[in-house]
């Protein structure tokens, strides 16, 4: 049913539009003066100032791969992250570790591990699903490139970003 909202009754002074006009001008001038005095600044000058120092603990940046303290790849190429990844950004080609290798008893490692950073949505599901704690979301957020190929992080790039992660492999390790 149609419902008519009653209009407020305005006094004569209010109907001249001047009180509200002057009120509005006061507010904007207040903002202007506060800004000129250097008090009202809210915009960050991005490349010079960055959030880096004050990023929250739970910040989810670029996904990376890590090695353990013996420089063993933690990833065992189980491909769980590849399956869980909502935008299908991850591509893994597994391979068997040759018997001569120091870490042969781990049996599998990724031959190629690629994350397409154009597709990645930084959801962190890969990190959550990883049984080996091999993939972590770091705090890097300025991932740029001039070509599409550049935006696909391959294995070397991922290890470079991730670095070494020491400590036990247990699922809910508070260490990040």
């Amino acid at each position: 049913m149609a419902y008519t909202v009653p209009r407020p009754k305005l006094s004569l002074l209010e109907r001249t539009y001047f009180p509200t006009l002057i009120g509005g001008l006061k507010i904007t001038l207040g903002h202007f003066i506060r800004f000129v005095q250097g008090k009202g600044k809210v915009t960050m000058s991005y490349p010079e100032e960055k959030w880096d120092a004050s990023l929250p603990e739970h910040y989810r940046g670029a996904p990376t791969l890590v090695t353990d303290e013996h420089e063993r790849e933690r990833c065992v190429a189980c491909q769980l992250c590849e399956f869980i990844c909502p935008p299908r950004a991850i591509t893994i080609v597994p391979e068997q570790i040759p018997a001569a290798d120091k870490f042969a008893k781990v049996e599998k490692r990724p031959k190629a591990f690629e994350i397409d950073m154009i597709r990645c949505i930084y959801c962190g599901m890969c990190e959550e699903v990883c049984p080996e704690q091999a993939i972590f979301l770091r705090k890097d957020y300025a991932i740029t490139g001039t070509t599409r190929a550049e935006m696909v992080h391959d294995k070397t790039r991922l290890y470079e970003l991730g670095g070494i992660r020491e400590g036990l492999v247990n699922k809910w390790n508070p260490l990040k």
Partner: peptide
Amino acid sequence: KVSAFIQDRIGPN
């Protein structure tokens, strides 16, 4: 610049 200052921004700098 004026619009930026009024809206608490920096404007072209």
